[in-house]
């Protein structure tokens, strides 16, 4: 009996010691194979002549990188990616906060409204892109027709750079504004209500309350939303790919993004070496913007901390007096 008991307790000790590692291992194994390894190996591919069909060729060092940054198409893609990112993130955050503010009140059928603003989220980006590219057809699309009836000249949605970026950004905004509004709504509900009461006592109107109480309290959430948009936004592919029937981003690369450029190099021109070089450069860009974001966040968060404590102190003082 005794040895078996011993064995059992030893098994149990092993169980307790190693089971946690077993439980978390699926994530780490999978991440290593489909996340980390491909990323690191991208650098290896980027340093070679590498054809989609013929496979690995000669080691070429940094030649692929040099070739890519020497291309006009690369810089245009970079410009487009940043521009579409800014156009889709900026207005989206503003609209989402305003919508959240409207939702954060005594609404009848509250759940209905929340679900209502979230609806576009379940529409696949490909469908969104198809519908919107119909809206923005240059000659005979809905948008230009409406503009025409109110006496505005047709806009070159598919020929001019900025309009095409606006159209693509509108697809992103369509899908994500309501979603982010709910994030802001959650953050707004976490704002201590007495802050508003205090502001009201101080004679602040609703708009004033919104600007001086709500928005500052939301700052960390805003930064969060911007950071998460950065990672996805800089890799935008679906919407510009489906903006016209060719999928190459326009005759002059008006809306060709980095990821489309990567795809075109890798899968249309079969040059995995060049495509990998673009991937590495885009990775560095995302990291750089991430670091900038992080620094700003830290600074603002610190400032924010001080500010809110002063506010609270003021509140307490007010309560006492």
């Amino acid at each position: 009996m005794a040895p078996r008991k011993h064995l059992r307790s030893r098994a149990s000790a092993w169980d307790r010691k190693y089971s946690p590692y077993l439980y978390i291992s699926p994530f780490f194994i999978l991440f290593a194979i489909v996340g980390l390894f491909p990323l690191v190996y991208t650098i290896w591919v980027a340093a070679h002549d590498w054809d989609l069909i013929m496979g690995q060729g000669e080691f070429v060092g940094l030649d692929n990188f040099a070739h890519v940054v020497g291309q006009r198409a690369f810089w245009i893609a970079l410009r487009n990616t940043l521009s579409i990112f800014i156009l889709s993130t900026g207005p989206q955050v503003v609209a989402a906060i305003i919508i959240a503010y409207m939702l954060d009140s005594h609404l009848r059928a509250r759940t209905f409204w929340r679900m209502g603003v979230l609806l576009p989220y379940v529409v696949t980006p490909v469908a969104v892109a198809l519908i919107f590219s119909n809206f923005f057809s240059q000659r005979f699309g809905l948008v230009n027709s409406v503009l025409d009836t109110i006496g505005i000249d047709a806009i070159g949605w598919q020929s001019d750079v900025l309009p095409s970026h606006l159209a693509i950004a509108s697809m992103v905004n369509f899908r994500w504004t309501g979603y982010n509004a709910l994030i802001f709504l959650a953050a707004m509900q976490a704002v201590p209500r007495d802050l508003y009461e205090q502001a009201e006592i101080d004679g602040a109107g609703k708009v004033r309350q919104f600007i001086s109480v709500t928005v500052p309290m939301l700052r960390p959430t805003i930064i969060f939303v911007v950071i998460t948009s950065t990672i996805g936004g800089l890799q935008i592919f679906d919407e510009p790919r489906l903006y016209d029937q060719y999928g190459r981003g326009g005759t002059d690369g008006q809306w060709q993004t980095m990821t489309i450029y990567l795809y075109e190099l890798g899968w249309t021109r079969s040059d995995f070496g060049l495509a990998s070089a673009v991937a590495v450069l885009l990775f560095l860009l995302i990291v750089a913007i991430g670091i900038i974001n992080f620094t700003i966040t830290r600074r603002i968060a610190n400032g924010e901390g001080r500010k809110s404590t002063t506010q609270q102190r003021r509140l307490k003082k007010g309560a006492r007096s």
Partner: peptide
């Protein structure tokens, strides 16, 4: 709800616009 605001017609109007705007492309 937030700050005990009682939403007026404007808020409802805006929300209707947002929801309708969200559904319009699907309707289209």
């Amino acid at each position: 709800g937030g700050q005990n605001r009682r939403p007026g017609f404007i808020v409802y109007g805006c929300l209707v616009a947002v929801v309708v705007g969200g559904m319009f492309p699907l309707w289209w």
